[in-house]
Amino acid sequence: MPTLLFKEVGLVKGVGFNAWRRVGSVMQAVTVYNMREVDELVYLDVTATTDKRPPDFESVDELADECFMPLTVGGGVRTVDDVRRLLQVGADKIAVNTVAVDNPAVIREMAQRFGSQCVVVSIDAQRRADRTYEVFTHAGTVATDRDPVSLAQEVEALGAGEILLTSIERDGTMVGYDVELTRRVSEAVSIPVIASGGAGTYAHMAEVLRDGRASAVAAASMFHFTEQTPPEAKRYLREQGFRVRL
């Protein structure tokens, strides 16, 4: 599934959660992905939390009206009412990140009210020198001293329906997913884990699905900056023996 990152006025893509480059308009991207029948779309407003903004409900409404595929919306989501309003304007799933660490109890409320299937917890993690991992919040700017595995287990117990797991140092590098990180989290929970951060080739996707035990893969840079496309990725994965929709 392609990830669209929104900042200020347009779509961006960075490296290591930094060095953002403009990559075009949201509606254009959605129209293209509609045509290409991508499986799902993830739309993250990357600076909402650090700018202390709530989600931009109007923009999501416009986007969702043209998006005939499952849409996950994240960025600045903190309350049950944020979730209610986003679902109302057409989001299918909501991604929470910072609030999962600051106020995890709200995840239980969200899941009870709207169902686990629409509560995605987005976990951004960075590898430490000693090969352990640490969770960061606020778009990768605030260290939490939390282990992604224990956080994933905690939010699963609270009712989260999926984990969107992003490796901060692999983000935008296109050198491959952090398979070790993905495997540790996937093996520790029984909800689906979407691997994110580092995709550069179709083979990277196969690797993290197989060795990282991911349920699904997300990618941004490789779809923005290379000739590779979601339908070709799916054909490749089907040839490699994975269950994908063509």
Binding site: G115, G161, I191
Partner: peptide, 14 residues
Amino acid sequence: EPAGEDRRIPHIGW
């Protein structure tokens, strides 16, 4: 209910 390889619930996806 989880069965064999299909252990991830909710069932989300295509």
